[in-house]
Computed example of a mutant assay.
Amino acid sequence: MPVPEEGPRWEDPELTRLARRLRDAHRLVAPLPAEHRKRLIRHLLAITDLAKRDTALAARRLDAFLADFHGTPDAR
């Protein structure tokens, strides 16, 4: 018996792009000193959680996060 389709499709290009960008953002944050890294990771986790409900809003928040991140002196 087939399983009813629920939730997002795994081959959704928008979700795949967002997931890759979130992964890359985590990689950018990982080498930072612990005191900065913890705060930024919490922010990324909030964006990840938001993506479960509103992909477009999560993508905009990630854009803002990355713009702020690249503008900080601690960013590499």
Rank of each mutant, 00 (worst) to 15 (best):
M1S: 15
M1N: 05
M1T: 12
M1W: 07
V3R: 07
V3P: 05
V3Q: 12
V3T: 02
P4D: 09
E5T: 14
E6M: 10
E6W: 02
P8K: 09
R9I: 09
W10D: 14
W10H: 13
D12F: 08
P13F: 11
E14P: 05
A19P: 07
R21H: 13
R23Q: 15
D24C: 01
L28F: 10
V29C: 10
V29S: 08
A30M: 08
P31T: 14
P31A: 05
L32N: 11
E35S: 15
H36D: 12
K38Y: 05
K38D: 15
I41V: 11
I41G: 00
R42P: 00
L44G: 10
L44S: 07
I47P: 10
I47T: 06
T48H: 13
D49E: 14
D49K: 09
L50P: 02
L50Y: 00
A51R: 08
R53V: 10
R53E: 06
D54Y: 02
T55E: 04
A56H: 00
A56E: 03
L57D: 09
A58V: 05
A58F: 03
R61P: 03
A64D: 15
F65T: 04
L66H: 01
L66W: 02
A67D: 14
T72W: 00
T72G: 03
T72P: 00
P73A: 03
A75V: 04
